[in-house]
Amino acid sequence: MAKKNKNLAKKEAIKGFSISSIYLVYAAIFWGYPFVWLFILVFSKWKFVGKPQFVGFKNITRVLSDPLFWKTVVNVFRFMLYYIPLVLLGAMLFAIALNKLKYGKTFVTLSFLVANVSSGVAYSIMFSNLFAVNGPVNRLLYNLFGVTIPWFSSPSLAMFSIALIVIWKFIGYYGLILYAGLSAIPESLYEAAELDGANGFTKFFKITLPLLNPSIVMVMVLAITLAFGIFTEPYMITGGGPMRSTLTPMMHMITTAFQRMDPTYAATMAVFVAGISFGMVWLVRKIMEREVDLV
């Protein structure tokens, strides 16, 4: 009997391993190999040909003392400063409105998701036309109030304008995540609170918001990882300007690797960016994440 069980366990193990082996092979090729290669590059000097030469911590000290790299990191934080509060607020309002809708939910959801599946290049061209100096928005403002807004040409406003475009893209997607969280909150909780005399404000802050914690944290994590990888919008619209105010680490890395022909330095910057974004995600989870129990 024991032998039979052992055989069965072995069979199960083989079956399980064969099923997961596809993923393991995939991960080894597309994740493991580049990951190992990345760390080799961080400690080497290599220009696409020949064997990488070991240079110790030279690339790392270079990143630490490169003002341009740190400027791009500061730009990401400036982006997050505009992006995260506004996109959270927008997505929350969208989720609440969707929750209250009786008809046409699918239509509204799909309308918002269209932005999310649009091509980055296409909508970047659309927005740069819309907000151009002689574009419709500025023409209207000029005709009505005699002023124009330098959406993409003011160093202090350009990143905000980029953030607005990315908010437009992601509001529906994040809104749906929050909506799923909202739908999972049992109606009975609100009814019980009403019996206890809670008003709308109290219900929102004492029931909705705490119970939405996992969804909010998830949206925050997605928003942070997105912020560190932002590329298409600034590349297409502002080219990193004005005065490098929208230059992002991703743009800097691509130019460094493929135009300055310095892939090892670009790889080192990539490791730093990954570290900083991981640190941010960890911090947000540490500060915000709460255990939520509906029982």
Binding site: V133, N134, N138, R139, Y142, T148, T238, G239, G240, G241, P242, T255, Q259
Partner: peptide
Amino acid sequence: IPQERYSVQVIQGRNWWD
């Protein structure tokens, strides 16, 4: 005519190749 038409586009953009 401001916000409507300009004489010459003197600067092409902010990319290095511009």
